[in-house]
Design a protein around this nucleic acid. Structure first.
Lengths: 345, 345
DNA sequence: CTGTTAGCGCATTCAG
DNA sequence: CTGAATGCGCTAACAG
């Protein structure tokens, strides 16, 4: 009824009027155009402050077709894993004065994937896809419309897509090798969701290390997990029930490793003297469990940063191709691993 | 050079042209206006689909001043704590077909707080403030311009503000009482940042329980923390160095409790037989540490949901006042607490 | 250096 | 029921 929108946004025109100039000049001041006399600029700036002027982004982007916000598509929140990546994204975005719109894929899953592409177009300038389950669904439609996007922690379909990942294979290789050097000969492995390439790479790294060191690859030592904590628990339980159980277990992520630790303790076994355990990711909690967990660090925050940088680069120059970047993983040795006491010889 | 924006957004005009009607009619169809002949509507709908038309939100909100996106202001990401809340927000927003724009306060901190209010106005319809450090900075300016917002996990300044919180006082009271019933008489307490009302409430709950049970409140048993893990470590160390150390420690959040557990173990003491420990929050990891931690559950996800519902309510009817809602906390007994073995009598 | 003008895509009057 | 016309707040291209 009553004109409730009392605050009645003040516009560029209000400023111009009060500053005794034209709206064009004000616009220039806002956009740091050089072609403005210094005193004029000062005057306008002053008035802007007085009036508490703030640009209307809708109108601005209506013109330039640039919104200065990038969309981030994540599978879920609440896991420290995504949080770390987000932190990197956010930091880098801040540097570029851009904002961040969050979408969760489970939300989008209900509609066709292409819908997402449509949805975000016009709202965001570019898209960061974090760990999409079936990236092809998105990427194809995105690539088709030539929409800028960067994949995080996922291989594109071999196309010339922009992506940042980590050296999962190497990390798993090193971790396995570390266990071998500790004298372990039977090393259990708990996989992640094999529809994720990072999970595949980790398994491959494990296998390669075994092969390189002339150790047999026993299928019974590989348990199929899906990155969830109970998988770790069940995996370790299954592995320890083996007639010839492993003396060390390598889980494809920290969360499963924690589950495995639980299972081990529940059988009255001691970590690491009875069973060594290694995780993957180096989420913050991995240092806080008992005993502190040996794990493979993934530079999550940095991955977020780099991906964001890549996106910004593309945004500035759409013809530039940044390709795929792999950030190094690193073995973090803590106290959940020790030499194999049963080692014969 | 070449018209790269190949995908060239198709507008309402394109649809109108192809459907052999005027843009006004198309607009009506889009907005479910009743005054459209059924066959006309069908024809337009068909063309919209064919052309893959998608509304330009910028333009739309430029007019109607509704964006259907709500802003969420969080202090930081990466902590499971915020993640849980976010999950609730996201779920509820999805139900209301709204989107979510994320802002981190540390980013905004550099500018005046009021800047934030200005910044988001026009971009988002409403604001969810999660655990703001100094909410007054925001709320006053927000309230002034009559901008819809809901506070999460923070008391407003006694104004008629919309907020959702948890029963921190009760939770702390119950936890302390639980320890007392276990026979503990000297109970250490590690506080959170006392500029946060939840931290104050928890301390008060602890104190009240002590008082109710006629136990002395020894100032030396209270250690000043700030919700970070090292605070827990240092706090427990300090408390255990006391001439007459506590037999139980209550930390104001789980993360500090984990730090405390570390400190206890480092002195060769056993949990819970030597020292019982209780945390607060029930973050996912609290069940994963060893031993699994007794803690006070805060319904974080639900807090996010409820706050979002409140905001949506206000958005629909600005005159409605929803007030403040307190969600119940709950003591989760796990294995980091046990009867006081030293209990005399 | 500065003022003027023409749209951006859409919702909304106002006439038919 | 439908078409035409007006402007939201701003940028960009043009004239001064």
């Amino acid at each position: 009824m009553k004109p409730k929108r009392a605050s009645s946004r003040i516009t560029i025109v209000d400023v111009a009027k009060k500053a005794g100039t034209s709206l064009g000049t004000v616009s220039r001041v806002i956009n740091n155009d050089v072609h403005v006399a210094d005193d004029t600029r000062q005057r306008v700036l002053l008035v802007m402050n007085e009036l508490g002027y703030v640009a209307n982004r809708q109108a601005r982007s209506l013109k330039g077709s640039k919104t200065n916000v990038v969309g981030v598509l994540v599978p879920d929140l609440g896991t420290g894993y995504i949080g770390e990546i987000m932190r990197g994204i956010d930091a880098e975005l801040a540097l570029n004065q851009m904002d961040l719109m969050l979408f969760t894929t489970h939300r989008a899953a209900s509609k066709e994937a292409s819908y997402v592409a449509n949805l975000v177009e016009g709202v965001v300038d570019g898209l960061l896809l974090v760990l999409p389950r079936n990236p092809a669904d998105y990427t194809s439609s995105l690539a088709e419309r030539n929409f800028p996007f960067v994949l995080i922690d996922h291989q594109g379909g071999g196309k010339t897509e922009h992506a940042v990942g980590a050296t999962n294979w190497q990390g798993a290789y090193k971790a396995t090798e570390y266990l071998i050097n500790l004298g372990h000969r039977r090393i259990g492995f708990i996989t992640g969701s094999m529809d994720l390439s990072c999970a595949v790479d980790r398994l491959e790294g494990y296998r390669s290390a075994l092969r390189t060191h002339h150790l047999p690859e026993s299928p019974e030592l590989i348990y199929d997990g899906a990155f969830f904590q109970p998988d770790g628990y069940n995996g370790a339980s299954t592995l320890l029930d083996l007639p010839n159980p492993p003396t060390a277990i390598f889980a494809s992520n920290d969360v499963m490793a924690m589950g495995a630790m639980d299972a081990i303790r529940n059988r009255g076994l001691h970590i690491p003297s009875d069973v060594s355990i290694i995780g993957f990711d180096n989420i913050p909690q991995s240092a806080l469990v008992y005993p502190p967990m040996t794990t493979v660090m993934q530079p999550l925050e940095q991955m977020g940063r780099v991906a964001t940088q890549m996106l910004c680069t593309i945004l500035k120059d759409p013809d530039k191709t940044v390709g795929r970047i792999e950030l190094p993983t690193e073995l973090i040795v803590r106290q959940s691993t020790s030499p194999n006491k049963n080692r014969v010889g």
